[in-house]
Design a binder for these strands. Structure first.
Lengths: 333, 333
DNA sequence: TTGAAAGCGCTAACAT
DNA sequence: ATGTTAGCGCTTTCAA
């Protein structure tokens, strides 16, 4: 069973001082004689004292914890962000709670609620949908929060936005520059804002090049989760439509398309060029390696952390940060 | 700024009772008249009261939090385990802290220390190396702990072991059953116990079939992290050695090998059959899809959680659980 | 430079 | 069935 932990009281006793003095020594919150300091530090070392973060948090109302809420940690896009965040946070002395919503709206609110009970200092919210209730709650209680890819400005001012329109534009433009004239758009989760924006970018690039937007080669699927399969289906549908390029709004879709093409003997990029979106680890490893739009996780994580720290320090409400995607050219274009 | 949270005191005041009574109502720890109960619940609802988990934890010495320490959350094997664990834990009312060590031994100890400060109820430790100090500490303080793939029995009794020897055996046997006679072994991180065990299984299968173990086609690399590249190198080396099968001790290596074969025009599985290990999400999506040994993350997570709960409940020290890998036959064999 | 005392929000033993 | 009291481990006035 759990051993009784060493407390400041124990340290104080051993050092022959009073407990608040130990606190002062540790926190440097009063001037203490070197003699006492030495005795206290010696006692701490000897007893292997570990401050109790709960007690401290209860008293100071600052727990040095941050919550990460994301749809799915096995999605490598989120995993990368989570890793970077956790890294940065631990350096700053924060612990991080994490939780996956599994794309369920209900659990979003439940998790925010739960984290509030644990007095987290801040929350980084990565929703797939615009879910107002939890954001409203966060704002209402003044919990420092940053959201990813969301437009509910009325609740949370601090957000990290990927410029999805720009990404769609750059991806499509790249295909055009490769001489492609008939470029399909293949989206999953078409209802999601990010996907809509990518589609807007796609249209802008086509228009700019004087190319028509043909609804026959704009494929969208509302299916969640089974994203690879969606791409696979798309691949089958598209071959008959005499296209020479595809912009897939997600790497998983692109990979599905690639797989389908391989099955059908279509040569990539000779017959059809493919651009994905996200730059997940698989993209690089696919055969042929996938050209895609990269969304730099480090930048997102860094921005999110900075925003949170600003809010925690009470230096403002944070602001909107736009992170630009980058084209990574590999072998499918 | 953070708004002052609603406390039991506020609820008590509104309900016209004393604060401990509210506690009793909430926890069902005394018989309370329905009238009072109703008033209390009404007040809770009206004020939107959220219990303070820190205060409760401080008092009860049970925080309902679990720590997950893993090498790297972007590694999909760990991500899957993390997701499953978190899922199961949240259902049981636990929050989960997570932290990546990035394969650094120092941070392992630091993280254990940190989590102890936060009074976690238990820790699931996933190390890559056998690192005694943190385990010793955990044991010394009686913190419920479960380790993954580790043999330091002297410290932590509760562990989840993948039967890597069996996995290596099954993978190799499968290749033999496919008529392969000259099967290479390609390992990364050869110093790690898991990899050694897989190698043992490989040898057992070969011996059983009367096939020689040829050192010339046993490749090992101590490089960490760049695992795909290792596989790629292996692929180049192996082609000249007239092999007809490969057991790669990791999917990433297998994928690297696959990639290298594709570059060299080697047909898989016709020329050379390939079996990987881990069944990472990429395995299914590769072209051709990778035959591999699957390590069921759900089983690992479930076992780990059960072990932790047993220890937390004070019902024992936990035990060793062996999880068997399973062969997943796809297109590379 | 140090000590005494109060209190963060909660639970739990005891009294009523 | 409900109230009183104490205390978890810490920080933070205020005194000395």
């Amino acid at each position: 069973m759990k051993k009784q932990a060493v407390t400041m009281k124990d340290v104080a006793k051993k050092a022959g001082v009073t407990q608040p003095t130990v606190s002062h020594v540790i926190n440097g919150t009063a001037s203490i004689s070197t003699a006492v300091k030495e005795r206290v530090f010696a006692a701490i070392k000897e007893l292997n004292y570990r401050p109790n973060a709960l007690a401290k948090g209860l008293k100071t109302n600052s727990t040095k914890t941050i919550g990460l809420i994301m749809p799915d940690i096995t999605n490598s896009y989120y995993a990368c962000i989570a890793k970077e965040m956790e890294q940065l946070l631990i350096e700053k002395g924060y612990m991080t709670f994490f939780s996956s919503t599994n794309y369920s709206r209900d659990s979003e609110m439940r998790l925010v609620d739960k984290m509030m009970r644990y007095n987290v200092d801040g929350i980084f919210v990565m929703f797939e949908f615009l879910n107002e209730e939890p954001l409203k709650t966060l704002q209402q209680y003044g919990i420092p929060a940053v959201v990813l890819d969301d437009d509910a400005e009325q609740f949370i001012k601090s957000k990290i936005n990927m410029d999805n329109e720009l990404g769609g534009y750059l991806a499509t433009k790249h295909l055009i520059e490769r001489g492609r004239k008939r470029i399909a758009f293949a989206a999953e989760k078409a209802g999601i804002l990010a996907m809509k924006d990518r589609f807007e970018g796609y249209k802008r690039a086509l228009k700019e090049a004087g190319l028509p937007v043909d609804d026959a080669i704009v494929l969208r699927d509302e299916t969640l989760q089974y994203r690879f399969d969606a791409g696979h289906d798309y691949g089958k549908q598209l071959v008959a439509k005499k296209i020479d390029g595809i912009f897939a709004s997600t790497d998983m879709v692109a990979l599905g398309v690639l797989r389908s093409f391989a099955d059908q003997g279509i040569k990539v990029p000779d017959d059809i060029a493919v651009v994905g979106y996200d730059d997940i680890p698989l993209a690089e490893l696919a055969t042929p390696a996938l050209t895609t739009m990269s969304q730099p996780a480090e930048k997102v994580a860094k921005a999110a952390m900075e925003q949170l720290l600003v809010q925690i320090a009470g230096e403002g409400e944070g602001e909107k940060v736009v992170v630009n995607p980058q084209l990574v050219v590999r072998e499918t274009t």
